[in-house]
């Protein structure tokens, strides 16, 4: 039996788990080999020291504390009391709300019943488009006014305004807003003042006008033009 084999089996030897023959051989080796014998003795000393170490005892009985804790646990929910659901902390809140809810329903139903024959509210008509969101400055929905920075559109082609159109206009002048779009067309013609029935054909002629668009910093912009149109009869002097 080699020293390595002996050292590996010292634990089994100590526990008496080796057979008779291996145990005898190991005993013989330990008596003959000072190194293994010394190791065997130091192993026994170490384990004896461990076995003889005083048993540590708790300063006070643990049973009393454990039973105290079990008693506290058995008392009730403890902290859970603080985290109960709302309806458990106030169990009467919902039953007490039921009559109030029923009364509210009755009052609302009565109010609706009494209100049924009332006069209908007058219809309010709003011209939402005029107050709607406007586009960027210089576009057709938000045209610019003439200024030192904005050049005036110039008429490129105009539908002929015949004498008939002017005669139909009557005596009253017209105040007209024309929005000249960025491509030179007329996007809007609005009659601000005047007889709309008489002005209809004239406004249609204005709508067909084409312009050289107004510009700001060299770029075409939509421009709003205000025109006062009136009829003037020119007669030869009476001689």
């Amino acid at each position: 039996m080699t020293c390595g084999q002996v050292r590996k089996r010292l634990s089994e030897y100590m526990d008496g788990e080796l057979g008779v023959r291996p145990a005898r051989a190991l005993t013989g080796h330990l008596e003959a080999c000072p190194s293994c014998g010394g190791r065997w003795r130091s192993l026994r000393t170490a384990l004896e020291a461990l076995a003889e170490a005083p048993r540590l005892e708790p300063r006070e009985p643990i049973a009393a504390r454990v039973l105290d804790r079990l008693e506290v646990e058995s008392r009730g929910p403890g902290l859970a009391l603080l985290f109960r659901p709302f309806w458990k902390t106030r169990p009467l809140i919902f039953p007490s709300l039921l009559p109030a809810a029923a009364l509210l329903v009755v009052v609302l139903a009565a109010a609706l019943a009494l209100d049924r024959d009332a006069e209908p509210l007058p219809t309010v008509i709003t011209r939402g488009a005029e107050w709607g969101p406007t586009g960027p400055s210089g576009t057709e929905s938000n045209p610019l006014f003439l200024s030192s920075e904005v050049s005036a559109p110039r008429v490129r082609t105009a539908a002929p305004i015949t004498a008939d159109l002017m005669v139909a206009l009557g005596e009253e002048p017209l105040f007209v807003e024309t929005v000249v779009a960025r491509d030179g067309s007329v996007s809007t013609v609005t009659l601000l003042d005047g007889d709309s029935q008489q002005a209809g054909p004239l406004l249609e002629a204005l709508r067909r006008q084409r312009f050289e668009p107004g510009r700001r910093n060299g770029r075409p912009v939509a421009v709003s033009l205000y025109r006062l149109i009136s009829r003037m009869e020119v007669r030869p002097p009476i001689t």
Binding site: R55, L56, E57, P58, P61, I62, A63, R65, V66, R69
Partner: peptide
Amino acid sequence: EGMVFNLAARLLGDAEEARDLAQEVF
């Protein structure tokens, strides 16, 4: 309790912790 405390104290190397742990064990 003696056995539990002794084993816990030796395993943990801390008597205070062993006392607390012994309660948890029981």
